[in-house]
Amino acid sequence: MANFKKKQAGSKQEIPTSAMPDVVFMLLFFFMVTTVLREVTLKVKLDLTQASNIEKIEQKRLVSYIYMGPERLPGNQLGDDKVQIDDAIVDDLGAIRNLMYDKLIEEPRLIVSLRVDQNSEFGLLTDVQKELQQAGTFRINYSTKREAD
């Protein structure tokens, strides 16, 4: 019985993988840097409305958000419409003026993005807008989703 010996390649053919962790780490750092982990915890229910003629906000650094919608209460209940700036609900609408004015001093090209629940009433929005006028933050943006055509 003849023994067949498999022919072996003379030299070992291996792809060097020692650089793979470096490549993966590089990608990892990219995504770590771009990820925004700390999102604002919403204390109001937010269901944005849709519109078709919208523009993108390119410079996100300039944007400051104001959230408006029914307050989330413990036990999955919804309360009255409230205004939230940063992490806190603002009960006294007159305080918005000072809050936004301080932000305007920090960033003169401030854009205020109004994220309003679609079922909240216009009355609250107009009160907030009046405060924004007093604060001098005139550039606003009604945040909406893109409407599917």
Partner: peptide, 30 residues
Amino acid sequence: ADIAFLLLIFFLVTTTINVDTGIGMVLPPP
């Protein structure tokens, strides 16, 4: 490499590259 891949996949999944869209307006002075 496995550990790095695991972390990478975690950040890939959690990253949302979302763009803010909306209707821009300029309020008049008071």
